[in-house]
Design a protein around this nucleic acid. Sequence first.
DNA 1: TGTTGTGTTGACTTTCAACTCAACATTTGC
DNA 2: GCAAATGTTGAGTTGAAAGTCAACACAACA
Lengths: 113, 113
Amino acid sequence: MSFGTVLKDKRREAGVTQRELAKSIGVDFSYISKLENDRLPPPAADTIVAIAEVLEVASEELLAEAGKLPDDVQKSIGESLAAQEFLRDAKDFDLSDEEWSQMRESLRKLRDD
Amino acid sequence: MSFGTVLKDKRREAGVTQRELAKSIGVDFSYISKLENDRLPPPAADTIVAIAEVLEVASEELLAEAGKLPDDVQKSIGESLAAQEFLRDAKDFDLSDEEWSQMRESLRKLRDD
DNA sequence: TGTTGTGTTGACTTTCAACTCAACATTTGC
DNA sequence: GCAAATGTTGAGTTGAAAGTCAACACAACA
C-alpha cells in the first residue's frame, strides 16, 4: 500500500474530490492527482498533516506511510541529546508495534503520579 | 553554544586542522570554516556523522546541536506508526533528560527477560 | 450530443540545501 | 619579518523538494 493508494482511499471515504481537497489545503488539484498515482513523492510533513485534517483521519497514519515525522516532533526530539540516545537504542532493538505500545505505557506511568 | 562553536572546539581538541578534517570527509575546507563561524546552517546528518567519526566524538552530540536525526533512525521511526504515536506522546509530555534516561531503562527491561 | 464535473499528464518553475572555487587575510614557526 | 600553514569570505554551482500551469481525457447525465 503506497502513500498514493492510501490517500486516494481516504479521500474517497471522506467523499471529497481532488479539487476540493486541493483547494482547502492550498495546492493545485493536479498535485493531488499525481500524489494519488505515485507520480510524485509524498509531500512535506506539514502538507500531510493538513490533508489529514481535511479528511479527518489521524495524521500519523498518512505520515507513517510517507515515512515522515511531523515538524514539531522532529524539532523537539532532534534537539534533545537524551532523546537521540533513546532513539538510537530503540532503533537497534528494532521494536515491534506491541513493544512500542508498551513503551507508551511506560511513558504514561512515568507521569501519572 | 551554536553548532559552529561546538564544531570548532571539538576539532581543536582533536588537534586537527580544517583542511585535514575537510579532506577526510570529502568536502572543501572552506565549508568547514563557514560552519564553524555559523555562516551556513549545519550540514546533512550523514556529513555530521562523518565529522564525528573523524573527531572521535559521539555523533549524537553534534547531531543534537544541529537538531538533526541520523538517517537510519529517521527512516526506522518515520515508517512505524507505533513509533510515531509514542513520539507524539513523548513530545507532548516534554520529557526531561532524566526522564528520557528512565525510558532507556524501560527499553532495556523490555528486552532483558 | 455537448457541457459539466472530475481526474491525468508533461513541461516548467521556484526555492533551498549543500555544497565548490578562487581570492584574500591571519596566524605561527623560524 | 617573511614564508608556510591555516582560516575567512563572496560569488557561483548543482540537484532535489515541492510544487504550478495549461492542456487533454473521460464519464455521466440532461
